[in-house]
Write a protein that binds this DNA or RNA. Structure first.
Lengths: 198, 198
DNA sequence: CCCTTTCTTGAGTGATCATTCAAGTATATA
DNA sequence: TATATACTTGAATGATCACTCAAGAAAGGG
């Protein structure tokens, strides 16, 4: 018997994520959100509760999408292949709104005042690093990477390189694709070392 | 015949830089600055003109200090030695207020709305990258790195790695020193390749 | 001691911030 | 068609924002 919302809540979260991703938390005002989402304050607060609550939703969605994208690569190209392709994918203009990782941006913007949202973003980053470690282990089990390497160490370095790459991609006048290519080659080198050793 | 200021303007800029560095632009209110600098609004605006103007001063000082620190390393350890030691230096808790690079934080926070301060930070980063390239060339001239490498490419990758490292250091529960050590070892590897080639 | 000059103080400015809520509107069921 | 049940609207709220300015305080030269 009631009235139905005129908006698609899921699509609103996507649009909010893209805006937060680009402009950050403080850089995005409620007026900005109202404009982009096409709703008035009343509807906004009925739908999401607060700016913080919506930001949290977008953080979670961002992290989930990223992990899904990586796992899709794994199914198509295997663990090592996915790790090799991910840097290029993530910097590719056609697939990304902004280039720099939204999680890292959030940690940097809000981490200075130990904020709840920054802590959540940090947790997502840790989960991502754990996923990288899992993939490196899988690559070792596949015989693509030597067992002598420590998968956790490789994952930690991989994430650090990835974050550096993604930040560089955000800058004007930096050839991010070239850096992505170099990271890919480093992983290929890792695999070659293994083949030589056998 | 006039009255002299009760504060040391230079030290105020240092303190403001540390606060901006940690909390970012939007995260630092004028009340925060008044508390940390120990001056009231009237004196603040007489001394610095505006929050933006002070931020610009702190950006410039930050960049200058970083470059000086690197050049001091060069004099003591040569070009390659400096490039090897810089990552550890920059992540060392005793020398840095925050860990992540203030320039990159500024670009990320304000770059989404093409802000003047973000552009300035970006320019400082470019200068830094150019300095890295100069050092790689010097390392080549010293015979420490093979001439076959392109110094600009090495510098671009070095900066990307450094930014990733510095962001990782800002996160809770990440062993930044280990990553710094790995970057150092990569440069040592670069040098070894050269010696082998000769 | 007086006067000029500069610095310090802090209440006050208008703008913008996130958020609230009462009034109006649309829809599904009875 | 009547009514209950949401949803939409937008003006209003108090807080905080960066910033201003008039009045008072300190210091050096006459």
């Amino acid at each position: 018997m009631p009235r139905k919302p005129e908006y698609d809540r899921d699509e609103l979260i996507d649009r909010a994520r893209d805006l937060f991703w680009k402009q950050g938390w403080a850089g995005t005002s409620l007026k900005d959100l109202e404009n982009v989402l096409g709703i008035k304050p009343g509807s906004f607060y009925a739908a999401f509760g607060s700016k913080d609550a919506l930001f949290e939703l977008t953080l979670d969605r961002y992290a989930e999408t990223g992990a899904n994208r990586l796992e899709a690569l794994v199914e198509r190209h295997g663990a090592l292949g996915a790790l090799q392709r991910y840097p290029k994918l993530v910097v590719d203009a056609s697939t990304a709104m902004a280039k720099a990782c939204m999680l890292s941006k959030t940690v940097l913007e809000l981490g200075g005042k130990d904020n709840k949202l920054a802590a959540r973003a940090n947790a997502h980053l840790s989960k991502m690093e754990a996923l990288f470690a899992t993939l490196f282990r899988k690559a070792q089990d596949d015989g693509h990477v030597a067992q002598t390497f420590n998968a956790d160490v490789l994952a930690r370095r991989y994430q650090s390189d990835l974050l550096g790459l993604r930040f560089s991609a955000e800058r004007t006048g930096v050839d991010a694709k070239a850096i992505a290519h170099e990271i890919e080659e480093c992983l290929a080198e890792l695999a070659k070392t293994n083949r030589r050793g056998k």
